[in-house]
Structure formats: structure tokens, C-alpha cells
Design a protein around this nucleic acid. Sequence first.
DNA 1: TCTCCGATTAGAC
DNA 2: CTAACGGTCTAATCGGAGA
Length: 426
Amino acid sequence: MQSSRQKLQQLALVDCNNFYVSCERVFRPDLINTPVIALSNNDGCVISRSNEAKALGIKMGQPWFEIKALAQEHNVLALSSNYALYADMSNRVMNILHEFAPRQEVYSIDESFLDLTGMPYLKDMSYQIKQRVMQWTGIPVCVGIGPTKTLAKLANHIAKKHPRSKGVFNFNELSEQQKDSLLAKISVSEVWGVGRRLSARLSAYNVHTVQDLKLAHTATLRAQFGVVIEKTQRELQEQPCIELTEVEPAKKQIVSSRSFGAMVTDLNTLKDAVSLFTANACQKLRAQNSHASMIQVFLSTNRFRPELAQYNPCISVPLPQPSSDTVHINKWANHLVERMFKAGYQYKKAGIMLSEISPASQEQTDMWEPQEPVDTSLMRTLDALNARYGRGTVSVSTQGADHSWHMKQERKSPNYTTDWNATPFA
DNA sequence: TCTCCGATTAGAC
DNA sequence: CTAACGGTCTAATCGGAGA
């Protein structure tokens, strides 16, 4: 229950519409009103769709090869994902949003919570947010407002779905009766935290709509479905349980892995690939000022080809001392690849995971082991060069000339915002 | 029997 | 022409091993 002493929160969830596709359209206005999709790494699955593509029945997460014919038939433009572009556009959007609220949580690449508590004329402000983001970046957004994060997300869903809302919906403006009838019309699967499995299990308990979940017997819910859904229920009942997290907490594990564009059979190529993944993972680690003391390396064959021999080895080792040094960690990673490698398999994917992560500052040292002074200058220079001239400008040497394993990206747009040579409207 | 830990599950985007 | 199905991250929960 909402305590009477507690001020009603006004939380906004601002979500970009069809974000990746919208980013592409900013630099290709000719694509507006046409079916466009963005594909996952390796041009594998559909991960963003324009409204026109959705209308054709193209599903989120659908494998590209399944819809290729349909796409050709309807002139759907399919683009490889261009993360440099999306990350840059995201930063621009997030910076604009931050101007509207002192407290902001950047929840994902295309979503941000804003705390608008105590501010007047929220609807006007929301339209202003939409308008300014559109004018300054070309990205369309929707705004949902509610007393909790879960209800703000739901409000955003309503704003997106109902044209009459014109992209803004404030749950807090509704009467109790309006809330009841609205929530009774929305499927429980639309609730943040309720996925496919959970909604199937919930329906066995006759919980089908958001209102059903809001009114369900709490103790039973807790016993059958756990603490997460209990929090969700309380949030639907307007009792805040999920706090706004303004500063992003340091990651507890960092993974870098990728499927290969072509199957890999030889050890050296695998080592090259893992070296690159290690460099990426270590750079992320240094970016958050951390060290890791456990590394895990894994290889895998193609699980979608059961007729081929399968092998999915994975080994982890503790590091003698916590580190974020690419060269050092790469020695271990290479060693693990050698240990796991078995000839005769067609490898489709590999990766590295860094864990047992601690702040780089408070180093725990073993008083019995003589400590080698750690030279961080090489890594700092490397990070600085890559930040200045673009990722991959400088990397730890790999001799391999065979690059056939690199990601398939046959349909990528230019890096419009970060590459001087990119020509828009080509 | 209790606790710990790694593996598995479920969810988000 | 064929074959083709993403990558990261967190928290909760489960189940076995060891104390």
C-alpha cells in the first residue's frame, strides 16, 4: 500500500521507438515509411523492426534466413547492426533527457527512467521531451509516467500502443476505476519481469491480466513464484520496491564472445579469436577501473547442427593475482584454448569470461609472494589511442592472417556519426 | 542437518 | 550454389558435496 506519508512518485520511462531502425533512418530519410529491420551480430536474427516490418509479420528474434524470401518479396531493407552508431545516438538522447530531470537512470541503450516527482504540468513536459529529442536527434520516443518503475514501464507500453495517447501516457492521472478497467484489459505478459514461461505458469493460477496479478493472493504468489514477482505485484499496487539506480554499478562479470562468420577448425585461428575477445573484455574491465581474478574460456560447436559432432568445453582458472592487463590475461587465455582444443571439430563460437571482479585500487596482495610492480602505462596508452581513433586502432598483436571467422556483417551502414569519411544519403 | 557453491533458470533488451 | 538461429548481464533457485 502507498503509505500516506510518502509523496507520490512521478517516474517517467522514456523509450525510443524501434531504436536501431530509427537510428538508421536519421541518416537515410528515404527509409521513412518503408519496411526496415536491423539484424543481430553475424546477421543472425531480427532485433529491431520498423512498424512496416512488424505489419508484415516479422517477429522479434526471428532468424534472418527464415524471412529472407518474405523480405525480398516486400522490399524489406535488412541492415547489419551498427553499434558504434547506436551507442553514439543513445548518448545524445540520454544527455537531452538528463536536462529534464535531476535524477536519471539510463536503463538500457534505448530507455531511461527520469524522476519527475514534484514537477508541474507533466503532460506538457512529456510532449516537450518528445519534441526536443526528435528535433535534436531525429529519434522518436514515447513517455510513460507512473508511481513506480513497473507502472511507468506499463504506461510507456500504453503510450506506444494507443495512437490516441500521441506517445505520452500518465498513469497517475487515472481514477481508481479507470486504473482497474485499464489493467484488466492488458495481458499479464506485458508486465516488466513477466516473461513467456512465467505468464504460462501464471495462467494455471487464473492470472491472465495485469489486474489479476495486482489482486492475486500475495502469500501464494510468493510461495509459488518467488520474491521477484512479489515485488512486481507490490509495484503494481503502487508501492515502490525497485529503486532508481543513478550510478551504474560495476559489472560483476564481463563476457566477450562471438559466433564466427565461418566454422573454425584450427587451433591458431581459435587463439586469434580468443585473443581479440580477451582484449575487448580487458578493456571493459579497465574502463570500470577493476581487476579480475578468475578467467573462464569456452569453445563451442554449432548447436543448431545436431548432425555434426558436438563439443562445448569450458575451463576456468584463478589468476595468481588480480589483473586487467590484456597481455597477461591473454597468456592464460591462450593456454586454456590449447588445453581444450581437440582437432576434428567445427567450432562455431568462442569466448572469455572475467569474474571475481574487484576495484583496481584496493589491491589485496599476498604478503608472502614478492609483488612485481605492475606496469599499467602500456594498457593506458592502448586505451587512449583506441578511444581517440576508434576501437581496434591498436591491438595486442595477433599474427593470424585468416580472418574468415570474423563476424558476418554484409549489410552494415556507414558510421555516420563517428567516421568523417561516412557519406550520408549515398 | 546445515551451509556453501556451482550450475541452471528466467528475464530484460 | 548452399547454409543459414545474437550477446551480455543479473538475481534467484536448485541440488549435490562437504562440514
